[in-house]
Computed example of a mutant assay.
Amino acid sequence: MRIGAGVVALLCVNATAGAATLRVGPFEQFTQIADAAKRAKDGDTVEILPGEYRGDVAVWNQKQLTIRGVGERPVLIAEGASAEGKAIWVIRNGDFRIQNVEFRGARVPDGNGAGIRLERGRLHVSGSAFVDNQNGILTGNDSDTELRIDDSLFAEAPRNAPLPHLLYAGRIARLEVSGSRFHRGYEGHLIKSRARYNDIRYNLIHDGPGGEASYEIDFPNGGVAFVVGNVIGQSAATQNPVVVAYGAEGRVWPDSGLYLSHNTLLNERMTGAWFLRVWKDKLPAGTEIKAVNNLTVGLGVFTLAAPGEFSGNVPAIAAFLGGPDILDFTLGPNSILRRLGTDPGQARGYSLAPAAEFALPIGTHALEAPLRWAPGAFQTSGYAP
């Protein structure tokens, strides 16, 4: 073990030895992001100054790189351009961190143009935005790829694209999403993931006014999925009554399990919703479904559409919340519903209790365990802007 740790440390030193910072901006070393992408070496940092970068698309071939916007978020506008007919940025195969960058307007003839196309490797995106793209982020199907997203915005799926998804993870090893907001989808899904392992926590996944998404979260091939502490909301104009879908297209991975804990699930359709639909007959034998302390708001079914272990889940109407129209999904401090939660327990050795809450406009704040757990995504109250 000591030898292995030493080798890893040596590799990290070698990757960053002599690392440079390349700056992109009107009066900087590089005026085009594409030029910096060609010149950057492994371990470098690329800094992008504020402004609009139109038609400036790039392929990143490095093995290790940090790319960050400096100050006010720089905005990359596709304007009909794409890297390799795929995306504004293509990440080939490396360990990348992208911070504070906005991607807009990705379009390609195949209909799957992305703000970022992750083909292989590991990518950590934080504090960024993906607006009006055929796909916000789209991955390949490499089974070792990992994607992590923190504190980012995905919004405004275009109406002239075939089935746009705000986020689409293919058959990759791992997807993690935290502190992020998803809204105003159209026909496609807000989050679609075929990943082997999924961790979706403390997000505002609420289609909202003007949204016409189908599923809010879709795990078409099952996999292991922890969905904890999110607001997951379906608009009145949704294209499909299912809010969370699991296993619709059949198994890919040998192991699957779905764990929903402390989510607030909303439906604005007058004709009702399936808050959760599970195609258990298409999943591996023994697939575990567990849902605890979820709050369902609006007309619809939850436990009837999915066999599994359910406890502490409570139906409610919008009047019990602070004000969904102003994005206040909290229960009042004296709400009778606060008494109906239960101990969240564990699954696969991990606690199902939330450790944080989504915080407007983007991000999270830490949460101390209360004396008694309330159902839904918020233990505290009054988080409207």
Rank of each mutant, 00 (worst) to 15 (best):
R148Q: 11
I137G: 01
S126C: 04
L147D: 07
G127V: 03
T139V: 04
H124Q: 13
I149E: 02
S126A: 15
N141F: 01
N133D: 12
I149R: 05
F154I: 08
G140L: 07
D150I: 01
L153Q: 12
G136D: 12
Q134E: 15
S128R: 06
S152H: 06
F154L: 04
T145K: 02
N135Q: 15
L123Q: 07
S128G: 02
L147F: 06
G136M: 08
S128W: 05
N135G: 09
L138Y: 13
T145W: 03
S143K: 12
D150N: 08
T139Q: 03
F130R: 10
D150C: 00
L138W: 10
G136Y: 10
D150G: 00
G127D: 15
T145Y: 03
N135I: 12
G140N: 06
S143C: 00
D132A: 10
L153E: 13
L123I: 11
T139D: 05
L153F: 05
N141D: 15
S152L: 03
S152E: 07
T139E: 06
Q134P: 09
N135Y: 14
D144C: 00
V131A: 02
D151A: 02
S128M: 04
D142N: 13
S152G: 01
D144T: 14
D150P: 00
N133P: 07
N133R: 06
D150V: 03
I149A: 01
